[in-house]
């Protein structure tokens, strides 16, 4: 690895994120409220996975896989409770997202905008794809998976993730 690229891989230990439970709770509830309420008026915003972005953010910033697992599973289970699918689908997927995001944060500088964009995109695609796999394998649903559409929505979510993460940094 060259000197110039090394800073991308070096996590900023100085800026260890102090997770405030109240902030976590409020942001998570706000993200879920956003997902169930805003699409009533702006249908195209239903493709914005705010609970996922919040899960990714807190897991990245907390840098602890156990915390990522607990955050992801909690948000996912609440999301499951508000869907008509069996409870556990979003829970499992977001648990994995939380775990991997926290693991990745130990190796990368997650304050970097480019890294955040890439991670936002990657985790959205991973989330949608793994959900589709679970729905087909565990529930026997015959849902289609539109890779191109998911890629486009992944880019949109990543674009939203960057400013959102900056706002959450201020909390």
């Amino acid at each position: 690895m060259t000197e110039s690229g090394d800073w991308l891989l070096r996590p900023r230990r100085k800026h260890q994120y102090r997770l405030r439970p109240v902030a976590l709770l409020l942001v998570a509830v706000a993200a879920i409220l956003f997902q169930i309420y805003v699409p009533l008026f702006f249908h195209y915003l239903s493709y914005l996975e705010m609970p996922l972005l919040v899960t990714v953010y807190f897991s990245l910033m907390r840098r602890e896989p156990v915390a990522g697992v607990l955050i992801g599973s909690s948000i996912g289970l609440v999301q499951d409770s508000l869907s008509h699918n069996p409870i556990g689908m979003f829970g499992i997927v977001k648990t994995l997202v939380g775990y991997f995001a926290a693991s990745v944060s130990q190796r990368f500088d997650v304050q970097n905008t480019g890294i955040r964009f890439l991670l936002g995109f990657f985790f959205f695609f991973f989330h949608q794809f793994f959900y589709w796999v679970l729905a087909n394998a565990l529930l026997g649903q015959t849902l289609g998976f539109d890779a191109l559409q998911t890629l486009v929505f992944g880019l949109l979510n990543a674009t939203v993730a960057v400013p959102l993460f900056h706002v959450l940094d201020k909390l």
């Binding site: 896989p65 156990v66 697992v69 607990l70 599973s73 289970l77 069996p86 409870i87 556990g88 689908m89 829970g91 499992i92 648990t95 994995l96 775990y99 693991s103 565990l138 529930l139």
Partner: peptide, 28 residues
């Protein structure tokens, strides 16, 4: 292997929950 253990426990718990719902056609 604390991290992996926690991950596996949480995943297995959710899988069991899911399996219970699918098997019994019930709801939590």
């Amino acid at each position: 292997y604390r991290n992996l253990t926690v991950l596996l426990v949480v995943l297995v718990a959710q899988l069991l929950l899911l399996a219970f719902q699918v098997k019994s056609n019930g709801d939590v």
